[in-house]
Design a protein around this nucleic acid. Structure first.
Length: 847
RNA sequence: GCCGCGGUGGCGGAAUUGGUAGACGCACGGGACUCAAAAUCCCGCGAUCGAAAGGUCAUGAGAGUUCGAUUCUCUCCCGCGGCACCA
């Protein structure tokens, strides 16, 4: 390549493609042929620039969409920038620049990098989540959540105006009605304990504070009470699980989402508190073990416990209070540390009444019961639950088996005792209540008003408020007289005001709160004095619907027209990182379903945004470690492109290994790809005479690429191209009849080289990459050579190989095998017991 | 602990889904070209026995099914990713 100015060539074609509009999708009105919407996760434009991992995903989908475009499909392969977010804000604070300026610069840099890779993006549809023209619709969509409630009966979101108001609320007046509505909105404000990161000074959603540490800075988070905007994603939990059956996602993605939503079915069971009207409601998935209950445990932060502490019922109040305090102070990490001894204290003076037997059992509090899951209280069945068993064991609490009467006598259910090696004492078998099946027990509880069937989820409602500057302002106005008033559509977007200081405040207020001129507004409803909401939206907001905007990115009257949505949606293929499985992917599925419920997305688009989801593996550093700035092992795409050019980079990334698996970067490996592309250039510069052997490899390669690209087997597609190229090298050139097809096959992988060969060497006048430019078709018959090497096995071991005609019959093949002198030697005069023939492969003789 | 994925030469990885294990690439060794080096081209390259022909062993370990197992079944070991006191 030293003799060819590779960068000039690449640059030249990039400009030609841009001016010819080669990669622009045709609109729904102009598009002919099948549409194909290929999507990659739009990047966050960080200051560091592109990582070599980005192009792996982008090139893969680029290869797939290029092939389909050549085949004549109307391809939409868009790009944009998810540019709001903390890193930019932190950078701005640190360097005293405006976040929008830093963002602009980063987007420009990313654009330059992406364009240098020759990716076939439709640059006329770029979106930027920080553009007011874009976030106007993010805000508008938030307001749709505000204007809606979830109808459990119809299992869909509906306009808030259609929310039935109970008569007793109506009679209490407008205030009560308004409060009732506010409680039912899909976007609602609630004071909750949030995960507060004292370092970032920000409230985090549970999913951003996994393991009790801040996702951004790794600092431990602490609980903090704060009024936050919440979105009722939990209402969609069932649909988010059930509809996975209708889409083609990698199984591991489905499994992770289902696990994350964490649905479990069981019952609420009420335990009365002796001598009071209180009842402790527990959640259990095993109501059939109700007779095994020997105590009840409430979470340390359980509201009932707080009430008992207040009314003086708790006899050991100081012990309980001390325990509560210890737990509150303890970091989440310690709490869940593996193998941790269980801790807890008995609540003296409080006894729970077993709902069936009427016996009293002690009530304990322990942090092994989570305040945030179920009802924050459990019935403990130490004989059948390992955690209860551990607790009972620590504190010497009694155990009781639940046994099932069977024909042969009595048998125990599974029990941790056996695991623990403790012998079972059969005394307990006396006086046992009748065992009931799970459903029977629930029926009994329902009939006797002691409980009900219940389903719980690990998924929590979505904390949607961020006390930060660099995000979409939440378009709500607080009016003392009217309550929460949405900013009227005509007044959208609510543009981020210019601010002097972006620093978050210790009070937990957004920096926007300091800008009084912006905060103070008159109420759109009554005209009275009012204040803007100063929290902003999380990063996940803009990315929850960007794929819809791509369908119609310049629309000023809607986020996208119904026509455009009908034409393009759903996304045919969405590729992205596994790390987004439980956050972005789940949020955007939910967001889409909601807009679909509300009729903002045409019903014909279907209830799922992505028909197919795939995920790429990580690119690791040369030693197999993760690339990281601190380790100094990061490979910079700019340097790779500078040294080898974009085509070598692309082909190498496709060749390194299976697309869905992690692979280490290998500097020697990229040299091999460089040699390969040079070989392509040199073999194509001379003609070879046509031969049957070349014809076979050629058609085998066509078949491999035609199928393999769809199956995302990029590494073996590149291998096959190498095999073909090696064959041409042996033949000292490419036969005239192969030249076009050969270049076309290379085109998705090495678009610049292919275009140079197509127009420069083959003398074509239009792009090899254009829509309908053509994709070579293979002849299945020609993929089979005239002869093949027939393997002959004796008792399953390869003993000889002979050349046979491809259409050899079974009889002939076996004859050939038996005629072989080598085989005769192995048979030692024995007669075959049986013979097997595998067409086109082998004969196995069993003696 | 639970869920998912994986374990094949010195390395990245192939193997038509039960049919020649190691394609393709890298690294390495030998040779050609060259005054020399680089580049390029040709040959070799799992282990082991053998001068060779050829044999034997080999896909994390062990068993099983089968004419035949990297592929299917069971048990176990190891690695990666996710979740994790979720009742």
């Amino acid at each position: 390549m030293a003799h060819r100015p590779i960068h000039d060539i690449e640059h030249k074609w990039q400009e030609v493609w841009a001016s010819e509009g080669t990669y622009q999708a045709r609109s729904e009105a102009q598009g002919s042929g099948q549409k194909y919407y290929g999507l990659i996760e739009f990047p966050f434009p960080s200051g560091e620039g592109l990582h070599v991992g980005h192009p792996r995903s982008y090139t893969a989908i680029d290869v797939m969409t290029r092939k389909r475009r050549m085949q004549g499909q109307n391809v939409l392969f868009p790009i944009g920038f998810d540019a709001f977010g903390l890193p930019t804000e932190n950078f701005a604070i640190k360097h005293g620049v405006k976040p929008e300026e830093a963002t602009k610069k980063n987007i420009a840099n990313f654009t330059r990098q992406l364009q240098s890779l020759g990716l076939g993006f439709d640059w006329s549809r770029v979106v930027d989540t920080t553009d007011p023209k874009y976030y106007k619709w993010t805000q508008w969509q938030f307001l749709q959540f505000f204007h809606a409630w979830y109808d459990e009966t119809e299992k869909r979101a509906r306009p808030i105006a259609e929310l039935p108001i109970p008569q007793d609320i109506v009679t209490r007046g407008d205030e009560a009605v308004r409060a009732y509505r506010d409680q039912h909105r899909m976007a609602y404000k609630a004071t909750t304990t949030i995960n507060w990161c004292p370092r970032c000074k920000i409230g985090l959603a549970n999913e951003e504070a996994q393991g009790g540490v801040c996702e951004r800075c790794g600092n431990p988070v602490e609980p903090r009470e704060k009024a936050q905007w919440m979105i009722r994603i939990t209402k969609y939990a069932d649909r988010l699980i059930d509809d996975l059956a209708t889409v083609d996602y990698l199984d591991k993605i489905k499994a992770q989402q289902i696990h994350w939503i964490g649905k479990s079915e069981g019952a609420y069971v009420d335990f009365a508190v002796q001598g009071t009207s209180d009842k402790i409601t527990v959640f259990t998935t095993r109501p059939d073990t109700l007779f095994g209950v020997t105590y009840v445990v409430v979470a340390p932060e359980h509201p009932l416990l707080a009430a008992w502490m207040r009314d003086g019922r708790v006899q050991n109040a100081d012990v309980v209070a001390a325990y509560q305090e210890t737990v509150a102070r303890r970091a989440e990490e310690d709490r869940v540390a593996e193998g941790k001894e269980k801790t807890g204290v008995a609540i003296e003076g409080v006894l729970a009444v077993h709902p069936v037997t009427g016996e009293t059992v002690p009530v304990w509090t322990s942090d092994y019961v989570l305040g945030t899951y179920g009802t924050g209280a459990v019935m403990a069945v130490p004989a059948h639950d390992t955690r209860d068993f551990a607790f009972a064991n620590t504190f010497g609490l009694p155990l009781r088996w639940v046994v099932r009467a069977t024909d042969g006598g009595v048998m125990s259910n599974e029990t941790p005792f056996e695991e623990a090696g403790i012998a079972m004492n059969s005394d307990f078998l006396n006086d046992l209540p009748t065992w009931k099946a799970k459903d029977d027990m629930i029926s009994w509880l329902v009939e006797n008003k002691k409980g009900e069937k219940a389903t719980t989820y690990k998924l929590r409602d979505w904390v949607f408020s961020r006390q930060r500057y660099w995000g979409e302002p939440i378009p709500i106005i607080h009016c003392a007289a009217c309550g929460y008033v949405p900013v009227p559509d005509a007044a959208l977007p609510v543009v981020l005001p210019e601010v002097e200081a972006y620093q978050p405040t210790d009070t937990g207020e957004s920096p926007l709160a300091n800008i009084r001129a912006w905060v103070e507004v008159s109420c759109p409803t009554c005209g009275g004095p009012a204040e803007r909401e100063t929290d902003t939206m999380p990063n996940w907001a803009g990315s929850s619907w960007y794929f819809l905007r791509y369908c119609d990115p310049h629309n000023d009257t809607a986020f996208a027209s119904p026509e455009a949505l009908t034409y393009w949606m759903p996304v045919d293929l969405y590729n992205g990182g596994m790390e987004h499985t439980t956050l972005h992917l789940l949020y955007s599925r939910f967001w889409y379903k909601f807009l679909w419920d509300m009729g903002h997305i045409p019903a014909s688009c279907g209830s799922e945004p992505y028909a197919k989801r795939r995920s790429h593996g990580l690119i690791l550093a040369e030693g197999g470690e993760k690339m990281s700035k601190s380790k100094g092992n990061v490979v910079n795409p700019d340097e790779v492109v500078a040294q080898y050019g974009a085509d070598v980079f692309r082909v190498y990334e496709m060749f390194m290994g299976p697309f869905d698996q992690a692979v280490p970067w290998d500097t020697n490996g990229i040299e091999g790809v460089k040699r390969f592309l040079e070989k392509v250039w040199s073999v194509l510069s001379s003609d070879a005479t046509h031969s049957d052997a070349l014809e076979t490899v050629y058609h085998q390669t066509l078949k491999k690429l035609t199928d393999g690209i769809e199956l995302m087997q990029f590494n073996t597609c590149v291998s096959q191209l190498m095999i073909l190229t090696n064959a041409y090298q042996d033949a000292q050139g490419v036969p005239a009849s192969h030249r076009e097809g050969y270049v076309q096959m290379l085109a998705p992988f090495a678009p610049h080289l292919a275009e140079e060969l197509w127009r420069g060497v083959l003398g074509k006048t239009t792009s090899v990459h254009g829509c309908g430019a053509g994709w070579p078709v293979y002849d299945p018959e020609k993929t089979i050579a005239a002869t093949f090497e027939l393997v002959i096995q004796v008792n399953g071991k390869v003993r000889d190989k002979v050349v046979a005609a491809s259409d050899v019959s079974e009889e002939e093949a076996i004859r050939l095998a038996l005629d072989s002198a080598t085989i005769q030697k192995y048979l030692e005069g024995r007669n075959p017991v049986q013979t097997r023939y595998v067409k086109g492969r082998l004969v196995n003789i069993v003696v």
